[in-house]
Design a protein around this nucleic acid. Structure first.
Length: 830
DNA sequence: GTCTTGCATGGGT
DNA sequence: AACCCATGCAAGA
């Protein structure tokens, strides 16, 4: 007869005996009835280990916990600042203090269901993988003075936890939307006989919610119903879970295969290192799931799973998330174009599919039910294709779910599992947040944006300018524009020229979604791993494509090649451009142009010559034009009022340029185009430059590009040159000219229709600029207009005062001057 | 002609 | 060289 596992007992194990803790072998300790009772009461250690070492006091209640003991290892959590906290206090704090990640339900009384749903999706998306930033921002939610308007504005950056869903809908009386909330749950400190059993965990929480919880409506909006569910403590409690795996199966593999139960069962997020109890020392190089039907060891799979599929979440976040239920993050995947397309099939990373999803032995697969973050159930089909002696796992039928989450290629789907029932949950995370807070969030998140791998550029509506969240890698800018430029740089047919514009890209994609190709006819939003970037390499710009174009600077150490077309020289850069620092063009009281440049370190604005192209990183120390102000400690010239006007000026210029046709932008001077407001972190990084000049050219190539020296000297293109570069530029030129003619025709037609506008124009022909300057902000007020006449750097807004101000900015004011303008632009580059 | 399905291909790791 | 996986594409519905 088996004896009690407790060495201090050794009583026979009877039928009334119970199971105790899980041992490192994966098996559960068989205890005699007395010991089992003590264990279930949570005082096993107090009875048997009282004189042992390792007792510590809870930092909150002072309760002693036998730390370090396998029996009590799930009864406490380790505090970041040191010390421990018993699970009772953990649960208390979870109950009585608002989850910083979730607003009090009070806020949602007036919210419509749609708003709530939207909030859920967005917030879940945030928490699943965007890192801890939302938690930092979250406390503002609890400011009682926060207005609903403010609240709504903050929605995209807020977070959602499953518990929050429960709270929300419990309060709104919509339990059908919660996640299995109607189930009678048991606290799941451990899994015994395939079902959670009571134990120390429940006991420590008895004073809060008891070991069992059957949901009851709450009347106190500030005290949320604490279901059952324990805080998931990565280093302890998780080891008792076998997330997603059938408990019977768990026992099977632990008993049959003698695999470490912990390692075999625990499916921790790869990003959470301390999820892995390493004490077992069981390491295996075998596959987590073999195709011959052998049981899968999740833990083994873990160690092999690609980190890129690991959710980006910290232990604390996970704890917060699991304030109501235990959530095991399984993996995530960035949606490719195929995944998000009409095919309704999502390719799953093989290792993740094999590790986390049910085993399938035939290509037909199995139906797989998942829930989304709203609690809606979706029935997918999990299957695989044989592929090169391997498998390609697919989740079919995902399109409706993905669409319901408004996910597109480049976004991320996250797979989680609710414990203990093992329900799979598919979450989603947008690759970018809406303009206006995206940059801010991205900057705040810093290195937490690892999942923003792809670059997507979007136009919110057809015809609008692009809102292009752009992730810039140290040596690579990933906007469609620049990527194209880089690609073009390798091809003499598509070298980067001043006249390039990418309007076609916008028109190519219905709805404004733009995914430029990394491969032929493929989508840019796909998993171009070369475009991925490390966490600390990411900055995110909220900037339009045209703005990006305006910020382009020719490589400082690379001279352009001169292409002669129709007798005009056009500077053409073999190398991709770099991004310059934006400045604000201004004019002093005597009409001289200059620029305001902002120091990257002190943010003070310095006056620099108008013809200077600043590098992306520029500080006061580089202000060689004004030595007196070459230190950050020196005050700036601008008084606050002037600075305000300056920024207004910049904003007006930005708006004005957005209203202008792309073709105009393509030919504007760089300085003018650089007057853009962008958000950046740590400055804009220079673009990469190809190390090989013509990677696609073969040795012996005699094209004009290859035979020309890097300095731009040597033979030049003739007018009759038919090389690819010339042909391309000619074609572009013709396109621009045709657009210009169309624009001229349209302008004439509009002028005829609006004679009053003509009368309002000044004699210098800058009607549109002057007009826009007044009307774009919707203020045609005279006093407002007059204000702009007062400050020197405001004059560029009113072209009547500064007639020459933007004359050159309109390359199509005179069709005959097209090439002159090209030359001017070239000259500015040079 | 369009959509779906399932395999093949090839770039990337 | 093996493997993964995005996606092309042909065949069938």
């Amino acid at each position: 007869m088996a004896l009690c596992f407790n060495p201090m007992c050794k009583q026979p194990v009877t039928e009334r005996s119970g199971r105790g803790w899980r041992c490192e072998t994966g098996q559960f300790a068989d205890l005699c009835p007395r010991c089992a009772s003590a264990y279930e009461d949570g005082n096993f250690c107090e009875v048997f280990h009282l004189t042992a070492s390792g007792w510590r006091c809870c930092e909150c209640c002072g309760k002693q916990i036998h730390c370090g003991c396998v029996v009590s290892r799930h009864m406490f959590i380790l505090l970041d600042a040191g010390g421990i906290k018993c699970m009772a206090c953990v649960k208390k704090s979870s109950v009585l203090t608002p989850n910083p990640a979730w607003p009090p339900p009070l806020y949602y009384h007036g919210s419509s269901p749609d708003e709530v749903k939207d909030l859920l999706v967005k917030n879940w998306s945030s928490i699943v993988g965007s890192g801890p930033v939302p938690w930092r921002e979250a406390p503002s939610w609890f400011n009682k003075n926060t207005s609903k308007v403010e609240l709504n504005l903050k929605i995209p950056s807020q977070v959602e936890v499953l518990g929050g869903i429960d709270r929300l809908y419990a309060h709104k009386g919509a339990p059908n939307c919660s996640l299995d909330k109607n189930k009678k749950w048991e606290s799941s400190g451990r899994i015994t006989n395939g079902s959670p059993s009571g134990g120390a965990l429940e006991n420590v929480g008895n004073d809060v919610s008891g070991s069992k919880y059957e949901e009851q409506p709450t009347t106190n909006p500030n005290v949320t119903p604490q279901s059952n569910i324990s805080i998931l403590e990565p280093s302890t409690q998780t080891s008792h879970f076998c997330p997603g795996l059938n408990p019977e199966f768990i026992r099977e593999i632990t008993e049959k295969d003698k695999v470490s139960g912990i390692n075999a069962c625990v499916i921790p997020p790869p990003a959470i290192n301390n999820f892995f109890p390493s004490s077992s020392g069981v390491e295996s190089n075998s596959r987590a799931q073999t195709h011959n039907g052998n049981p899968r060891g999740g833990g083994e799979a873990q160690s092999q799973l690609p980190l890129s599929n690991g959710p980006r979440i910290t232990n604390q976040e996970l704890q917060a998330i699991s304030g109501q239920t235990a959530v095991t993050f399984l993996f995530e995947k960035t949606l490719s174009a195929s995944d998000a397309g009409r095919m309704s099939r999502l390719v799953l990373p093989k290792k993740c599919a094999e590790a986390y999803l049910p085993e399938i032995s035939n290509p037909e697969g199995i139906p797989l039910m998942m829930k989304d973050m709203k609690g809606n159930e979706w029935m997918f089909h999990f299957r695989f294709w044989p592929n090169n002696n391997s498998r390609m796992y697919l989740l079919e039928g995902v399109t409706p779910c993905i669409q319901s989450m408004q996910l597109v290629a480049g976004d991320t789907v996250t797979f989680c599992r609710l414990e203990p029932e093992g329900t799979l949950v598919m979450g989603g995370r947008k690759s970018s947040t809406p303009p206006g807070n995206q940059s801010k969030e991205s900057i705040n998140t810093g290195n937490e944006l690892s999942t923003h791998r792809e670059v997507t550029t979007r136009a919110s509506r057809p015809g609008e300018s692009f809102s292009a969240p752009i992730h810039v890698e140290d040596n690579m800018i990933s906007s469609s524009l620049l990527t194209t430029s880089q690609a073009n740089s390798a091809d003499p047919k598509n070298k980067w020229t001043e006249a390039d514009n990418f309007k076609t890209a916008k028109n190519d994609v219905p709805g404004g979604e733009i995914f430029l190709s990394k491969k032929k006819n493929s989508t840019f939003g796909s998993n171009s791993k070369r475009l991925r970037m490390g966490n600390n390499q990411i900055i995110e710009l909220e900037i339009t494509l045209k703005e990006v174009q305006g910020l382009l600077r020719p490589p400082s150490d690379y001279a352009p090649q001169i292409v002669i077309i129709d007798g005009n020289e056009i500077a053409e850069f073999e190398e991709p451009p770099v991004i310059g620092r934006p400045t604000i063009l201004a004019t002093d009281c005597v009409g001289r142009k200059f620029q305001w440049a902002q120091c990257e370190d002190c943010c003070k604005w310095r006056r620099i010559p108008s013809d200077i192209l600043l590098p992306s990183r520029w500080t006061c120390y580089k202000n060689s034009w004004d030595p007196e102000r070459s230190l950050c400690s020196v005050a700036q010239e601008l008084i606050p009022e002037e600075l305000e006007d300056l920024l207004i000026t910049a904003k007006k210029q930005k708006f004005k340029k957005q209203d202008e046709p792309d073709s105009v932008d393509a030919l504007e001077g760089l300085n003018e185009l650089a007057n853009l407001a962008i958000h950046e972190k740590g400055g804009i990084l220079p673009l990469s430059r190809t190390t090989s000049k013509h990677p696609r050219h073969r040795p012996g190539c005699t094209c004009i590009v290859c035979i020309q020296s890097p300095g731009g000297k040597g033979p030049k293109h003739r007018q009759t040159c038919t090389c690819n570069a010339c042909v391309t530029i000619k074609r572009r030129f013709q396109t621009i000219m045709s657009k210009h003619e169309m624009k001229q025709t349209e302008d004439k037609r509009q002028k005829l229709q609006q004679p009053e506008d003509i009368l309002r124009c000044s004699d210098n022909g800058n009607c549109s600029s002057s007009h826009d300057a007044v009307t774009n902000d919707g203020s045609g007020h005279d006093s407002y207009k007059m204000k702009y006449f007062e400050s020197p750097f405001k004059r560029q807004i009113d072209l009547n005062v500064q007639p020459e101000g933007e004359e050159d900015l309109s390359p199509f004011s005179n069709s005959g001057s097209m090439m002159r303008l090209l030359q001017n632009a070239t000259g500015r580059f040079l």
